[in-house]
Design a protein around this nucleic acid. Sequence first.
DNA 1: CTCCTGGACGGTAACGTTTCCAACGTTTTA
DNA 2: TAAAACGTTGGAAACGTTACCGTCCAGGAG
Lengths: 353, 353
Amino acid sequence: MSETFPTKPEVPRPTMIDVARRAGVGLGTVSRVVNGGHGVRDETAQRVRAAIDELGFQRNEVARALRPGKKSTSLALVLGDLTNPFYATIAKASLEIAGQSGFAVVLGSVDEDPEGEKRAIQELVSRQVAGLMIVPDQGDHAFLEGAGVPVVFVDRPATGIDADIVMVDNEGGGRLATEHLLAQGHERIAIILAPSYYTIGRRLRGFRRAHRAAGIDVDESLVIQLPEGNAEAAEKATHEVMLRPDPPTAIFASTNFLTEGVLRALGELGSELESEPAVVGFDDFRLADMLPTPVTVVASDIAELGRSAARLLLDRASGADTRPPQRIVLPCGLIKRGSGERPPDSAAKRKPR
Amino acid sequence: MSETFPTKPEVPRPTMIDVARRAGVGLGTVSRVVNGGHGVRDETAQRVRAAIDELGFQRNEVARALRPGKKSTSLALVLGDLTNPFYATIAKASLEIAGQSGFAVVLGSVDEDPEGEKRAIQELVSRQVAGLMIVPDQGDHAFLEGAGVPVVFVDRPATGIDADIVMVDNEGGGRLATEHLLAQGHERIAIILAPSYYTIGRRLRGFRRAHRAAGIDVDESLVIQLPEGNAEAAEKATHEVMLRPDPPTAIFASTNFLTEGVLRALGELGSELESEPAVVGFDDFRLADMLPTPVTVVASDIAELGRSAARLLLDRASGADTRPPQRIVLPCGLIKRGSGERPPDSAAKRKPR
DNA sequence: CTCCTGGACGGTAACGTTTCCAACGTTTTA
DNA sequence: TAAAACGTTGGAAACGTTACCGTCCAGGAG
């Protein structure tokens, strides 16, 4: 390198010792002032505070967390693809709650495989976080038992450990969506399923229960298990099922990304279809109301999912909450927008508006 | 509480001292083994590693970061609404890069006001992060000068400090979008602007330059400054401008959320309009290709924005990079989808497909 | 007047790690 | 053969904070 950047003087940040010296008091006094200032004479506290301001002192959270028994003021959040608005919403909400209590949120690097998840979690634990919020992948989470930090699972339970869990009423949502379609007279409803997550299983159960309650048999050839949980897989599967000799008159997409894939396939199929099927998705998504046919979805308050998890974890971490592991379940509601309203016998093509 | 949860025995995690005792070696030797194991006899290292496995020892990153001069192995990321896919993409990408180097990413709680941002940053600095990635709000960031950690700004520069910056070619993008519309024959192009961010200013500059190059005057009444940067504001503004006696024949929306608002307004206006205007947005968004009229956008590689920022910051933090502050600018490209292709004289209504 | 009480404060140990230095044994060099 | 050099190891200091303990002084009780 021909010219180097003048490296910053790397001025060491002032410590409590500097503050103590400046204020002419002992180290303990500074500590007391920094932590609320009980047991310190007003006049002394003033002097200390003045010194803090002059030096621009800021407490070193790392040193603080080193003290015996103390945990850091950080929570860890382990989740999947942040690009999925579902996860992003959880992250944002938990961040907000944590921030209100002066806690930061550490995001471990998120891998796909269970092994990567385990590594990420251990990385986080080694940072002495006060608690873990995890949207768990498949695989055993028993190794968390000995981690010594409270854990809250979000959106789905984990196996091998009995911990708090905050989730959505997946079965109720699945039932709601299906009942809505059944009420329109549909009897051949396809359900598109992402790979074996717990949530998906519950949504399927709701689907079956709604059928049973209505006295209608589920055509198992319309229960479609995708190899992957992305829009492309759903698109392909929708293509296939709609071109069968006896296509479904309605489709229930079990995930926001899957809904997108379903709609994409229907759009491409377009006029090839004798009659466009009704569609209901699970989880709302942006622009759902602006598509050529606004899409009806079953939705829950995802942000509340994140908030509840963060609140619960903070209470656990502070020791304020010693109840047995809790199971918080948030309700789902139906947002009718149009795509679920097509009658099964309608041969009408999508209209301009 | 009538019954309390059996509090975990709170097993203290094993330390290096435990490992040393178990392996019958000194503390220094354990440290050497943990950090690569140079200068330790193979047989000794084996014994130490065995002890580590048996005890399930894991290095305490907090204690590690306390050592003089050492920073933690965490990077901080400060940004706006994670629910905005733009920010979420940056977060995901930087997380990925940081994770590859064993760094975690701490998200400070993100407020809207400059004061909240400053507080969040100081919270993060007090956690001894190795570096800061900031998508800065307005306001002076000179206070970062003395923070003693490397800073990389993302998406926009900050005032009051000369630091690395990774951004997008906003002016080029603005110009590209405008040129595309001009090439279709449009001469009355409205531009919808979010409040005074740096990026928006550059996009506007590109807009003006393109006009000048084409020898067409900008109608200043079509340069629309929004009071807020959300979809609602854009929707309202679009309504107003389209109902003027002499409406624009094309609209350039300077932000993904604004594009959404513009489209929403146009959808509502529907048949009230004599001719629907062409639309080009800045930044791509999910489902843009599935709207009734697929929307043309100017886009850049947002993920690369995050990746570059993280890479640069890691190099700065490790001291590997001592160059003067860098300015990385990523190019923008045009993604044609249809909404930008309407000729200015077309009286055609939106067609079914 | 003395003793005791209690509030205010100073000093120090401890947290778990890394880094430096000294000590040791072995081998090479003079 | 003695000295020097080297590789391996153990021990101690240091990082910045909090918790605990002891000291000091003032004031009240006896």
